[in-house]
Structures are given as structure tokens and as C-alpha cells.
Design a protein around this nucleic acid. Structure first.
Lengths: 333, 333
DNA sequence: TTGAAAGCGCTAACAA
DNA sequence: TTGTTAGCGCTTTCAA
């Protein structure tokens, strides 16, 4: 690494003090124009980049945030993780923050002294780490999980209302024989979606039939099995609300294989607007789009506001999902 | 952030000097057992975590590496990016390195003073940044791109031989009417795979038919179009080598829709072993598995060796892909 | 085996 | 508007 040039070198080259160089570098306006230009020229000439460690140490602020991601491997979370990553990556760049990524099974901890705050892309498997961060009074926001008990900021999708909206849409189309394939019910997300389904049927005085509720895990396999069962039942549903697009696509494939037309015979609505799954759908999928990108950006901004003290206490932000009408649903004729 | 305790606090608590605390923290063996224990107890009691910025500044090494990822959104790269991320995330954890993530369109630069080396997950769109890093003599490794002209380490998949192996496999099954659907030929990856296909036909003295070469872009849409053309030609192929699993799955779907049995009538082999696409395949897909995870780990280790001077100069590491036989290929009967 | 002390490169009072 | 200087928290000589 040739010769690392530092602020002194620049000061010498520009013929000013290091304080002036520091001021120019940090864009403090109290520098005479001519000096500013001299410094800038020297910086360019010497290719000076400030040593962040020194900056952080001196300024007692390190301008970096951490992102903790569980090491998932399943498809649903692949899409999720990627969207989150892109959103946060973008936000972080705009805010001139460094992003320290920590992918973990919950066994290892993020180096908290290297960051000013941390975002948990999910709480699952990281409860201990969240406690750890909270204990240090370190700014923190949790994504996609609404804690009741922890004094911490959260940003999440409104899964309950989104599911309700999806089911209401099906009802509006004239359906009443509406089945659902749930997500992994260990996750709050899946519970909320099932809840939205249930409450909406109730609200519309539609009988909740036990065998219209099939338990899935966001993935295709269980969805395929569930759909087969649905088809084989005495009173097959005319509409299916799947808690993920992947499951919706799986369901549609089974339906079609069995000579059942989508949406003519059965309407199917998904959840996520998962580009990864969408492409494989034989019929353009109607779905509830999650504002994943927005959630990521919001989380980053929220964290930033906490760090910079613009926000006191903690916030819970709930983002609405949006109905994307394509052609896998149709009114009952 | 309550009261941040530092090395002095620990020294006072343990009744030793800060130098001794530092030694214990850094596991230097020149500390008397009893003192070591006292320090460790103090560290635990006060929940001391060293300030990384200070460590880095003092030790002139920051124990962090950067990862630059282009902001892709297409599916092929989603899978790719995720695998890379997981692999590097794991490796980095094992090596006790911090990972600074920088997602970019090529417009913004990674903060190089915060890291000791950088990995480029792909060179596309980041040529300028690579130059920048190289200019500073900063350790660097590029993934999945073999530069001829840059003095830099690379880790890549052996796309040429992998493609050759795939085609050879088809030939061994008795096929000679073998078509290919290429990837986006702007990428070296796609070119190498096409090349492997071509050279293998040549080697086996099989005529290369122009209309057996269909130009795709790794994505489904073009693959679907290509497959339709293939079906409609006067002499439809009996086997298709697709440069990505996504395209292979698209091809199989078209084939089946047209009443063509896979693998009975037409064999299809993919590339990637992309879990995201595999699930949607009507027939378990035979494919060339890329050791993406291994590539990521290797890249990290290679970078680490350069940083720690274990490796001089630059290396080019080429990883073999592996044939995964499932049931989308069958011998010609 | 230990401690004192000199930096690491920078920021931010403070004084000029 | 500028420069001087005292740290930031740690590592690492050097001497004891």
C-alpha cells in the first residue's frame, strides 16, 4: 500500500494547517475561498482519503450502521433478503453511511463498537442479539416484526389488513367458498395473514370451514399438497388465498394440471409480488404487493433519525400492502 | 449510550495497567495467569468491548473487508448474489473479519480506508472502481471474471469446461441434434458456455447448425421464445443445453405444453443448480452445479491471504462445475 | 512479566 | 478565518 498520505501531508502541500484541511474535508464553511481551493487541489493531487478509523475515534461517531440478517436459505426469504438488502444499500449510500453486514445463525454477534446503530432484518433467531444491543442503549430497529414487549422501533408490513384486503377482494368478486394456504405459522407474518383471512370471512358472515384452511410454510411443496386436498374435497373452493406467491404459483400449477381453469373455475390470489415466483406462473398472478423496498428505506431512515436524535423514544411504523390485479382472479359467474 | 467503558476502566477495575489489559484482550501470552484472570473478570463485569476504531487506528489494520455488489435486479443474479453473500458472510465470520457491503450502480465508491481489501462480486459496471482500488495497491479479488489485462486475483467458475461436460453428457446419451440457448452474451460467463458447447460439438465431429443456437439472456422469456422456434423447425433437436436453469425450466414448460415429453422426446440440461428455479420445474432438472458457495469462500480466503501477505502477486483460481443428474435427460432410444 | 509513554490520524475547543 | 493543541481509545515499543 505505497505511502499512505495523511492530513499532514495535505496540509504541507497546501501550505495550511491540518485544522484547515479538516475543515475543508468536512465541508465546514468557515474557510477562505482561496485556501479551500488550495486544499482541494492538494487533496486531489495527493489522492488523499481520510482515515475513517481516526475520524471515528476523534469524532466519536462512526457513521456506520450494522445490518443483521439470519442465514436463511429458503426461497421466500431469498427474495425478501435481497429486496431488503437493495433497499438498505440504496438508503445507506444516499446518507453516506457505511453498512456493516452480519449474516448469522444467531450464534455470532455483530461488532457493535463498529457501528452507531443496527437494523435487524428479522428477529427470528436473533432475540439474544437484540437484547444485547438494547442493553447498550444502542439505536436499533427491527424489521417485519412488531414487538409488544421490547422498547424498540419496528418497521413492518400490515399483514393483517393486507390479507383482509385480499380476501375482501375475492368476496367482492362473488366468492364465498374461499380457501387459504397459510405460511409457516411460527412467524408473526403468517399468523397475521391467516388472521386477516379469518376476520374478513367473519365480518362478511361467511362460514369458516376448517378444511378450507390448509397449513403451509410459504414454500411450494406444502402448497401443492394442500391444493390437491382442496381439489379432492367434496366442496372444492372457488377461490384460494395463498400467503405467498410461491405457494400461489404452486397451487395454480396443480389446478391446471388437473384440468381446472384459472381463473375461470378457481381464482387464486398470492402475497408478496415476488418477482422470483411470478415469472413461473402459468397465469399472471394477482397478488398483494409488499412494499419491501420502502420498508428497508424506512427502517434505515428511522434508525438514522434515532442516531441523530431527531427521533426520541421508539416508533412503530406499519406499511400498507397494495393489491396488484392481474389475471388469476375473476368474478364468479 | 449509557457510559461507554474503555480500557482504562478495565485496567482500574483489574488493578493493572492498560497495557496488560490490551495484552489479555489480544491474547498475547506474556501475561501472568493471575493477572490474566483478573482482567478477564473485569472485562466480563464491565462488559467491555474494545473500540474498533481505536484498535484499527493504533494497530494500523482494520480487520475489515469490503464487498462490492452491482445493483442487479434480475433473477439470475438474485440467486447468484445471495449465494455469494452467504458464502462470504460465513467465511468472514470464521475469520473474524468485518464485512462492509457496498451495493452500487458503479456511480459510488466503497470507502476504501475502512477496509483492508475488497472483493468485487462481479466486474460489470465497476471497472472504474477496480482501477481505483488497484491504484492504491489495495488487496483485491474479482469474482466470476477472469481478467487477462488486470494484475489482480480472480476466482471464477470454469464455464467453458462445464458447458463442454454438459454437452458431452448429452452426446454420450446418444444425442447429436443438440441445441443451445445462450445467456446474455455481453457476459464472459455466457460466452464461455457457448464456446464450450461449440467446441464439444466440433470435437465430436457433430455439425454445428446455426438454427440450433438460440440467443437468450439467462431469463425465461427469451428461452420460451427460443424453445418455440426450436419446436417449429424442420429438424427439431432431441436435446437442449440451456445456459441457465431458469431458461431450462422455461424450455421444459414450453415443451410439455406442446405435448412433447421431457425427457422421453427431448432431453434438457440446465446450468447453475439454481434452487430458485429448480422448484418450478415440471421435471427434476439435470444441470451443471456451480460451486457458488465455494467460490465465495475461496475469494474471501484468497483476499485474506493477500492481506496477510501469505500470497504474493495475484492468483487466478478456476473452480470446476459438477454434473447433477436428475431426470430431464435420457438416452436416445 | 509488567508499566510508562509515544504515537496512530483525526476532530474540535480555544485562542489569536 | 486560521492555527495550536488536547484528546479520542488503543497498540506497541522500551525500560524496568
Amino acid at each position: 500500500m505505497s505511502k499512505i498520505i495523511n492530513i499532514k501531508d495535505v496540509a504541507r502541500e497546501a501550505g495550511v494547517s491540518i485544522a484547515t484541511v479538516s475543515r475543508v474535508v468536512n465541508k465546514l464553511s468557515t474557510v477562505k475561498r482561496s485556501n479551500k481551493i488550495r486544499v482541494e487541489r492538494a487533496v486531489k493531487k495527493l489522492k488523499f482519503t481520510p482515515n475513517v478509523s481516526a475520524q471515528r475515534l476523534a469524532a466519536k461517531s462512526n457513521n456506520a450502521i450494522g445490518l443483521v440478517i439470519p442465514r436463511y436459505s429458503d426461497i421466500f426469504h431469498s427474495f425478501y433478503a435481497l429486496q431488503i438488502l437493495q433497499g438498505i444499500g440504496l438508503a445507506v449510500e444516499r446518507m453516506k453511511l457505511d453498512l456493516l453486514l452480519h449474516i448469522t445463525d444467531g450464534d455470532s454477534f455483530l461488532n457493535t463498537s463498529a457501528v452507531e446503530g443496527v437494523i435487524f432484518s428479522d428477529i427470528i433467531g436473533n432475540e439474544e442479539q437484540v437484547d444485547n444491543v438494547l442493553e447498550k442503549d444502542m439505536p436499533c430497529v427491527i424489521m417485519n416484526y412488531l414487538t409488544k414487549d421490547l422498547p424498540v422501533s419496528c418497521v413492518a408490513i400490515d399483514n393483517f389488513n393486507a390479507a383482509a384486503k385480499a380476501v375482501q377482494y375475492l368476496i367482492k368478486l362473488g366468492h364465498s367458498k374461499i380457501a387459504t394456504i397459510t405460511g409457516e405459522l411460527k412467524s408473526q407474518v403468517a399468523i397475521d395473514r391467516l388472521d386477516g383471512y379469518l376476520k374478513t370471512l367473519e365480518k362478511n358472515k361467511i362460514d369458516k370451514k376448517k378444511n378450507y384452511i390448509k397449513y403451509g410454510d410459504f414454500g411450494r411443496d406444502l402448497a401443492i399438497k394442500a391444493t390437491k386436498e382442496l381439489i379432492d374435497s367434496k366442496t372444492p373452493p372457488t377461490a384460494i388465498f395463498a400467503a405467498s406467491d410461491e405457494m400461489a404459483v404452486g397451487a395454480i400449477q396443480v389446478l391446471i394440471e388437473n384440468g381446472i381453469n384459472v381463473p375461470h373455475d378457481v381464482s387464486v390470489i398470492g402475497f408478496d409480488d415476488n418477482q422470483l415466483a411470478l415469472g413461473f406462473s402459468p397465469v399472471p398472478l394477482t397478488t398483494m404487493r409488499q412494499p419491501l423496498h420502502k420498508m428497508a428505506v424506512t427502517a434505515t431512515e428511522t434508525l438514522y433519525n434515532i442516531i441523530t436524535k431527531k427521533t426520541k423514544g421508539h416508533k412503530r411504523i406499519i406499511l400498507p400492502a397494495e393489491l396488484i390485479e392481474r389475471s388469476s382472479c375473476q368474478s364468479l359467474t
